[in-house]
């Protein structure tokens, strides 16, 4: 299929890429922008490995067409790690929330979007929010530990009110 130009902001940088109309956002990020931190585990929206943020909301990039994102602002796992590691990334490493690592980007991005809306989630909220992401290694326990640790660190760092709903 012939490719068409598409304008996006990816990890804070304006980019223009050529994508086929049927190209998924996951493939566009990986193949056109070489952002291979976003993983494809099932390519049908069942594992959550490909989760990225589109305008601040967690989205499955394998179920999102690149051209749906015209003008949107995308954040990938690489975008959290600009100049220094994000507390979520550090916590996933240090709490054992990442074993084989293949699902990790998806979990980190999903958690990142969650903490923006809900800075102090309960275990129940975590279970509910992370239920769409599959991890075959950890049994999820250390993933909750990681998100909770990062959440607490982020709350200490920025003891400001959570962003008002209109900002989203």
């Amino acid at each position: 299929m012939s490719k068409k130009l598409l304008k996006l902001t990816v990890n804070g940088r304006a980019v223009e890429i050529a994508c086929a109309p049927n190209q998924t956002l996951a493939n566009a990020l990986r193949d056109e922008l070489n952002l291979t931190g976003t993983k494809i585990g099932c390519d049908m929206g069942t594992c959550g490995c490909c989760t990225v943020e589109v305008n601040g909301k967690a989205k499955l990039s394998c179920l999102t067409l690149a051209h749906e994102c015209e003008g949107a602002s995308i954040t990938t796992i690489e975008g959290l790690n600009q100049y220094q590691m994000h507390p979520l990334q550090k916590a996933f490493a240090e709490c054992g929330g990442s074993q084989c690592g293949y699902c990790t980007a998806g979990f980190v991005m999903k958690s990142h979007a969650l903490l923006a809306e809900c800075p102090n989630p309960t275990r129940e909220q975590l279970k509910e929010e992370l239920a769409g992401n599959l991890c075959r290694c950890t049994g999820f326990i250390k993933i909750y530990d990681a998100v909770e640790r990062a959440a607490s660190e982020l709350r200490e760092k920025a003891p400001v009110e959570p962003a008002p709903a209109t900002a989203r």
């Binding site: 952002l35 976003t38 790690n81 996933f92 490493a93 990442s98 084989c100």
Partner: peptide, 8 residues
Amino acid sequence: DAYKKVTG
């Protein structure tokens, strides 16, 4: 290798 994994 955890830091490599969490950063993509």
